[in-house]
């Protein structure tokens, strides 16, 4: 199966700080991808690079084989993008937004957008600023989906929604995704939000890819080992130890298993996806601290939070 999105050594720097670095990955078409990482890990930067809002500092990104920067008119119609906080023109009515979409897109399925909005009981004549956060998110999603995209990029779509609105939003998204064979990338700082709907996972941490793959496979291949407090180099020689913790009497390891044989001294247990994600984020943090401890690149600077990225980006990306 072909890939919806591919990146090669993709990087983006703001001033001297890398928001995303050495990111090489391929997202297969037709998957529902969770893009997870702590705030400031580079999720927004990644999505903005993918939709062409940002130009890469290093490497390349391609969407269905085309560069969003160089071939915007090929890429944009195939991508439905909903930015963080689902920006809308507050004084525009919902209908005005539909007119905007109709006027600015060659491929535009207005009937589809209207039916979606009706389904959620969103009044088309109301100003967007007077809708609830959940309704605004639905409007933004409807605008993105009315393009009938092949790839949907949704940046923190659930952040401002209450649990009920989250469920509705995800349900609506899944209906489209399943019906149209859409590839979806959803970002969040919590995997628990997305676990139910996603089948593919990308963990970003400290501007790098910490983990990527099919979720079922990730869960299947990660195990927690609990054993006596001993040297665990034998385990580490075969399996990848992601996280270790010790008490006075026992050692707990989270490992990615590379075989089937375990020392009977270890008790083997399944781990939740959330634990796996947290372990990878922790590992990335540890490795970053180590690298900076070596005195290679001066003191390690905390990645900018998403807000700050936005500001930087705005300044440099206003027009072209």
């Amino acid at each position: 199966m072909s890939n919806a999105l591919e990146t090669a050594q993709l990087g983006r720097r703001y001033g001297r700080v890398w928001a995303l670095q050495d990111c090489t990955l391929a997202l297969p078409a037709g998957r529902i991808v969770a893009l997870v990482g702590p705030n400031g890990a580079g999720k927004t930067t990644f999505l903005h690079l993918a939709v062409g809002l940002l130009r890469p500092t290093a490497g390349s990104v391609s969407v269905f084989g085309h560069s969003p920067q160089r071939e915007p008119l090929t890429v944009l119609p195939r991508v439905g993008f909903v930015a963080q906080d689902h920006p809308l023109y507050k004084e525009f009515t919902v209908n005005d937004h539909l007119t905007l979409g109709r006027k600015l897109n060659r491929r535009w399925d207005e009937a589809y957008a209207v039916s979606r909005l009706n389904q959620f009981g969103i009044p088309l004549t109301r100003a967007a600023g007077k809708l609830s956060g959940g309704q605004q998110a639905q409007v933004a999603l409807a605008l993105g989906m009315a393009k009938r995209p092949e790839l949907a990029l949704l940046d923190e779509p659930l952040a401002s929604l209450d649990p009920l609105a989250r469920r509705d939003f995800l349900r609506a998204l899944m209906d489209v995704a399943v019906a149209d064979g859409l590839t979806v990338v959803l970002s969040s700082h919590l995997i628990t939000d997305l676990e139910r709907v996603c089948d593919y996972l990308v963990v970003l941490s400290h501007s790098r890819v910490a983990l990527i793959g099919d979720i079922e496979e990730i869960v299947r291949t990660h195990k927690r080992l609990v054993g006596p407090r001993t040297d665990h180099t034998a385990v580490a020689a075969v399996h990848n130890v992601i996280e270790e913790s010790h008490t006075a009497r026992q050692t707990t390891l989270l490992v990615r298993v590379n075989g089937h044989i375990f020392d009977p001294a270890w008790e083997i247990a399944d781990v939740t996806l959330e634990d796996i994600v947290l372990a990878y984020m922790g590992q990335a943090r540890a490795s970053v601290s180590e690298a900076s401890g070596g005195g290679m690149g001066g003191p390690w600077r905390s990645p900018l939070d998403d807000e700050k990225h936005d500001e930087e980006r705005d300044e440099s990306e206003v027009t072209r």
Binding site: P72, P87, L100, L104, N105, R106, D314, V318, R320
Partner: peptide, 23 residues
């Protein structure tokens, strides 16, 4: 342009099917 930047709506309008130059 300031209001598009201020309110973040450039992220909505730049993701439509037109180039930024045309915008």
């Amino acid at each position: 342009i300031a209001r598009e930047l201020e309110r973040g709506t450039f992220r909505l309008v730049w993701a439509q099917g037109i180039t930024r130059g045309r915008w």
